[in-house]
Design a protein around this nucleic acid. Sequence first.
DNA 1: GTGATTGCAAATTTTTTGCAAGATA
DNA 2: TATCTTGCAAAAAATTTGCAATCAC
Lengths: 134, 134
Amino acid sequence: METIKEKIHQSGLKATPQRIAIYSAMQRLGHASADMITEELNGIFPSLTIATVYNVLESFVGSGLLVRRYSSNNKMYFDVNTYSHAHFYDPESNRHVDYEDQELVKLVTDYVNSRGLTDFKLDSVDIQLIGTLA
Amino acid sequence: METIKEKIHQSGLKATPQRIAIYSAMQRLGHASADMITEELNGIFPSLTIATVYNVLESFVGSGLLVRRYSSNNKMYFDVNTYSHAHFYDPESNRHVDYEDQELVKLVTDYVNSRGLTDFKLDSVDIQLIGTLA
DNA sequence: GTGATTGCAAATTTTTTGCAAGATA
DNA sequence: TATCTTGCAAAAAATTTGCAATCAC
């Protein structure tokens, strides 16, 4: 638990119990929406409202603790994995599963960098593998 | 114009003037949200409402004419490019630019297929190149 | 003609905001 | 203590739905 507090501090934010709980839930869930977090925590934190969850997630994105990710439904999702990575996505079930494979990330990054593009500066890559999850 | 009508027909939908106009706007814009389409068309089609645009876009997705795409803001975007592809995305300006490069798509597809994954069946890939657009 | 589609209005869902009370460093 | 954060309520934004009139085939 100490680690999360430090992590929040290091990113320049005050480590409130709500923020600690929300970040911890994000670590547990990996990938979640504001209402998933609220539901996840309302046993421990009955006073926590979705407005606060949105505020906190937004401040986490701003300070680099989380990134927003895509979903084919119309909701914002957040992801603790802020690095370039790949994930499987099954549109049928709307499920995301991270696919940690630095070789794939490197393959794509190196390829794009080797193209010598002048009007785009690559920062990170997000490789979505769409298909059917067992 | 005839081609669009046929395309809609072939996908099993009735080719109404609204659908033709919406698909044609999507082709022009490449990547758009429901309100962008509505605004784009309300000069030609004053009666067209955003509810209809949503319905039409949804039916296009259902029949494979469009796919939904990601954005870091909280809106649904639709894309005429339904194939595996890569695109540049600049979070600062929220701009998307398609990057047509079949070699990159093939690189990723072949790599993933070569892994012999048993719990995932790859359908298509969506490679998001995040960074700064000039 | 018949079933699908449109357009309106209204409901629902998701996200954001204002502000007073409370907590953090 | 000074500033930032929370929580409530309410507003705003985005998406979906019900239904009568209309249209495409």
